[in-house]
Design a protein around this nucleic acid. Structure first.
Lengths: 126, 126
DNA sequence: TCCTTTGTTCAATGATCCTTGAACTATTGA
DNA sequence: TCAATAGTTCAAGGATCATTGAACAAAGGA
């Protein structure tokens, strides 16, 4: 690995950058689903209903570079997690209000939300 | 007046639209200053340090169309106010978290913030 | 080793964004 | 009526954005 994936330091996360990153339906769906999934990491492949492989790669990079998510290589996969602590420290209450609001989006605009909710947390992702 | 200024109904305000509207330094400054100004309305002209007349007109329209601010004609002026109640009803906690965070932006990125703060509320706007 | 899985990179395309200056409208006050 | 004030509209420009398909790379399993 010549260079690890870039992540801004917590104190460098900028509000306009975060707002821009989240001002897109696909990316908003990604973080809403990540949030519903609790602390469990998810892979890019679990979001394929939201777009093509290439498009997801693009949007995930946007979220990562803005400081919204952390991306950690794991074999051929990438494990995505929300940067909850960093975001709460920098912009208190912001992420929670976004997530609460995003969860009110109708399911037909949010196709895999039902799967992501998965209260038992025992879904076998393929 | 052939058509009054368009404002989305409160229940039509969309989260991605708001996030996109606020994902711009100029527009974020506008709402931060509006917020610091309390309930008092402000005119476009009071934001001229943030950009040209044309640019301000553009950004104010974006904020209005997204449902972030209300714009009311008053003579040759436009009176701008935050749609606090509508936003709080639709996305609880969101606006407050944005405003609190935006107020931490250094003043050199936020040139007229010192004026807008104006605790006595007695500034003579020219 | 070969194949599969998972995701990235690249170039191309069309769409949208932000800024600018010039011209314009509408309202107010002298 | 005339001029000043406040803001809008328009067309043009360059910049950035989101999507696509093809090619690529890296890791793991058979």
């Amino acid at each position: 690995m010549t260079h690890p994936l870039f992540h801004p330091d917590a104190e460098e996360i900028s509000l306009p950058a975060i707002l821009t990153a989240l001002g897109d339906e696909t990316r908003l769906n990604i973080i809403a689903i990540l949030a519903r999934n609790g602390e469990r990491a998810m892979t890019c492949g679990q979001f394929l209903e939201l777009g093509s492989k290439t498009a997801l790669s693009y949007h995930v990079a946007k979220l990562r570079e803005a400081g919204v998510i952390n991306v950690r290589p794991d074999g051929t996969k990438r494990l995505l997690t929300l940067r909850r602590v960093d975001l709460e420290g920098r912009f208190p209450g912001f992420l929670d209000s976004i997530i609460a609001s995003a969860n009110t989006i109708p399911l037909r605009e949010n196709p895999i939300a039902a799967n992501a909710a998965d209260p038992a947390g025992e879904t076998e992702w393929t």
